[in-house]
């Protein structure tokens, strides 16, 4: 399997009125062709902005850390450093949509309300596939059919508000895929949908990925969704990946206290009468990021004198998995 995206040491900071905040700090991950990486974390953990940095979609106040590396291998085998692309350059325009596609959470907000679905799809198709208008229309209808929209030939001339939520999200997927991306970033694509529609969309994405051999980054806060769709998973907390590895392994045998806490907090139909186990405390505000291990303020197993002082290194307790926690280092164990 070939690596198509490798992100190393990604740090993002913003200058705000309250000083410089760093919502993403030293994040590294890779995406392989035909595999899905799940990014999980609570709100404010930096999942979305890490992926927006790939497409240079961050607001102007954002600064990337000096050591940040984002290497993308394009369809023609060329290696591109995403951080170095200039705004408005031809290359960046080719990457956006043509190489890396993105699906956002709110399908209503990502379509323009004043153009028909077909119009918006054709624009992307003509730009990235170089087809003529008429061919592009046929192609758009084909894509809508593929994502399971019935009566596509009529739907193509409808406006986004005429479609239901689930259908709009499917149309969004069709639009994104019609540009033929090799890597798909899906940012909470099913969060705003009902469970029945969510199941349909997940099914669809799984099938399309298999068919087209795309790499995929799937951002969600729902570990249930991760368990069903992701091959690998990275758990983020306050801008740091605290644990990563094959999804099944991480969910079955979580090593980091935060991952354990997240899994324990999920209500389960098998334990209807047990009390839920929340992760104690609140997520610290980004302006008051705790020193040392970011999770130490809420961790029940924190080692006094170590966790709040030093940031834990990444260690591998289980082959293929990596965890950032002092409990899994020899130093930490002796201190405890």
């Amino acid at each position: 399997m070939s690596k198509m995206l490798s992100v190393e040491n990604l740090s993002i900071s913003f200058r705000t009125d309250e000083g410089v905040i760093t919502p993403v700090k030293g994040v590294s991950f890779t995406v392989e062709k035909g595999r899905t990486l799940g990014l999980v974390g609570e709100s404010g953990s930096g999942k979305s902005i890490s992926t927006k940095a790939l497409m240079q979609l961050l607001p102007g106040t954002a600064r990337l850390g000096a050591a940040s590396r984002m290497i993308y291998t394009a369809k023609d085998g060329q290696q591109i450093s995403l951080g170095n692309l200039r705004h408005g350059s031809k290359e960046l325009r080719r990457i956006r949509g043509g190489e890396i596609g993105m699906i956002f959470q709110e399908p209503m907000a990502s379509f323009s309300p004043v153009y028909t679905i077909g119009n918006q799809m054709m624009e992307a198709i003509m730009l990235h596939r170089g087809l003529k208008k008429r061919e592009a229309r046929q192609f758009a209808i084909g894509m809508l059919n593929k994502v399971g929209i019935s009566n596509a030939a009529a739907r193509v001339d409808q406006y986004p508000h005429e479609l239901s939520g689930g259908m709009r999200q499917r149309a969004m997927i069709a639009l994104t895929l019609s540009a033929g991306p090799a890597l798909l970033i899906a940012d909470e694509p099913t969060t705003a949908l009902d469970v029945t529609i969510q199941a349909q969309v997940l099914d669809l994405m799984r099938d399309l990925q298999r068919e087209l051999g795309m790499g995929m980054i799937f951002i969600t806060h729902d570990l249930g969704v991760i368990a069903q769709i992701a091959d690998d998973v990275a758990v983020m907390y306050l801008g740091t990946i605290v644990e990563r590895g094959p999804a099944k392994e991480v969910i079955r045998n979580p090593q980091h206290p935060y991952t354990q806490g997240l899994l324990d907090a999920i209500p389960s139909l098998d334990h209807l009468h047990d009390r839920l186990k929340p992760v104690p405390g609140d997520i610290p505000s980004p302006t008051a990021r705790p020193g040392g291990c970011p999770f130490h303020t809420r961790c029940t197993q924190a080692i006094a004198g170590t966790c709040e002082v030093h940031e834990p290194p990444e260690t591998s307790a289980i082959p293929g998995c990596a965890v950032r926690c002092w409990l899994h280092t020899s130093q930490g164990r002796s201190a405890a």
Partner: peptide
């Protein structure tokens, strides 16, 4: 509706009724 709930258990089958 119940069949569409994704389970956090990776071994549990996920076969929602379409």
């Amino acid at each position: 509706l119940l069949s569409a709930i994704p389970s956090a258990d990776p071994d549990a089958g996920f076969d929602p009724i379409r």
